[in-house]
Design a protein around this nucleic acid. Structure first.
Length: 397
DNA sequence: CCTCCACAGGAAGCGCAGGAGT
DNA sequence: ACTCCTGCGCTTCCTGTGGAGG
């Protein structure tokens, strides 16, 4: 009996592990009923051949934006069959298709599945797309997930929305999804007003909501009684702390499930706690791997200063939390740069790196208030310095 | 109260790379 | 093949801000 045989014959606590994967689309989305209804209402005119409004959806990661939209699109396609309506749709993830050209190409490829558009100019793609819509009179819903990733958004939106003015029949409707608040400010006012005919904000889930989301999935993923209620509750509580991220909650339970499965035990609190540390490590590693060189060095400077205690250790003394001063970190950053034979960036740009690191959730920034001279940012590391340091050292070999 | 500190963050501009237009 | 244009990453310069210190 070899390893394969033993693994195959082993009893597992999972019924369907796949249900917990980040790509799994559940049939039922708890606590998003109102959002689903609103989007359906907005899209409903398309079934009668009328143009629906464009929608812009904003919400933090793990608030169910993508799942909700995909769910509604599924329903729209079902309704299309039922009422024999002339509607179509594409879902495009702009992280992988982050330029106007790639998006037009993707649309063209779907509209003309038998043709090869490689190497065609984007104006040609545009014309062909317009031809299709004009000739068929279809109402075409384009979902742009993570729109903020598109380099030439203004161009793209202008092109797609202005197209509608030239169409005698048919229409392009846009659903934009983003988790970046500042994205709206960077938009051209014209594209802003067209994209945001309807604006929706998806709030983060609270602990109670996360619990009910988890329990639905857990019931499908594990065999009966193989995931304790307390474990589920703990995972929900951890995720609620992490800004209500349902994806994080699912990751936790999946990881905890794997740990428990290995031992052949039902999932309990201990496994969730272990999973948390493991998932956190994954996240740190993942974030740092995509980090450009200089932000990584800045982060390294922060982590090593935290470990050394910093120039002004535990100032303020609030629960012993260690804060660093912006200037102090910049000096350290310059020093590390010299040691690693890199030319340090200017202090101005260093501040941009700090903001970037904050947006990624690697550090937290607080403006200095009472008790501190001058007006400066106080920097706190979101993860353990040792994990961060080793991850960055690994990155630089 | 004024001044100084220790920065924050806006504006302008620069060199470069890669596409679009011709 | 060539110019032109545009976005990106960055520097330089500058004005603004909130509290400390005298």
């Amino acid at each position: 009996m070899d390893v394969f045989d033993r693994e195959m014959s082993r009893e597992t606590i999972f019924k369907d592990r796949n249900v917990l994967s980040p790509h799994y689309l559940p049939d039922h989305l708890p606590h998003r009923e109102a959002e689903i209804e609103r989007i359906m209402k907005i899209l409903a005119p398309s079934l009668k051949g009328k143009k629906p409004n464009n929608i812009f959806i904003y919400g933090k990661t793990g608030t169910g934006k993508t799942a909700t939209v995909k769910h509604v699109i599924d329903k729209l396609i079902q309704a299309k069959e039922k009422y024999n309506a002339n509607v179509g749709s594409v879902y495009i993830n702009c992280r992988t298709h982050n330029r106007k050209y790639q998006i037009l190409l993707k649309i063209a490829e779907i509209l003309y599945p038998d043709e090869n558009f490689m190497g065609f100019a984007s104006t040609h793609l545009y014309d062909r797309i317009m031809d299709y819509i004009q000739n068929t009179g279809v109402i075409y819903v384009v979902v742009l997930d993570e729109v903020d990733q598109v380099k030439d958004v203004d161009d793209l939106l202008y092109m797609l929305t202005r197209a509608n003015d030239h169409l005698q029949q048919g229409h392009i409707a846009i659903i934009g999804i983003s988790n970046n608040v500042t994205f709206m400010d960077k938009l051209d006012p014209r594209s802003k007003s067209t994209l945001m005919q309807e604006e929706m904000v998806f709030p983060p889930y609270n602990a109670v909501q996360l619990k009910s989301i988890l329990s639905e999935r857990v019931a499908q993923a594990f065999k009966p009684g193989m995931c304790k209620d307390s474990a589920l509750e703990l995972a929900a509580a951890y995720a609620a702390q992490e800004s209500g991220d349902a994806r994080y909650a699912l990751k936790l339970i999946l990881r905890a499930g794997d740990i428990a499965d290995e031992k052949g035990e039902p999932v309990s609190d201990i496994h969730v706690k272990q999973a948390r540390s493991a998932v956190e490590e994954d996240i740190v590693l993942d974030l740092i791997s995509t980090l450009p060189e200089h932000p990584a060095i800045v982060l390294y400077a922060i982590a090593s200063l935290i470990r050394e205690g910093g120039k002004y250790p535990t100032l303020g003394g609030e629960s012993g939390e260690k804060f660093l001063f912006s200037g102090e970190v910049y000096e350290k950053y310059e020093k590390v740069c010299r040691e690693w034979a890199r030319k340090p960036r200017s202090a101005r740009w260093y501040r941009e790196y700090l903001k970037e690191l904050e947006m990624m959730g690697l550090i937290t920034l607080t403006m200095s208030g009472k008790g501190i001279r001058g007006n400066t940012q106080l920097i706190k590391l979101a993860f353990s310095p040792d994990k961060v340091l080793s991850a960055i050292e690994k990155k630089f070999e």
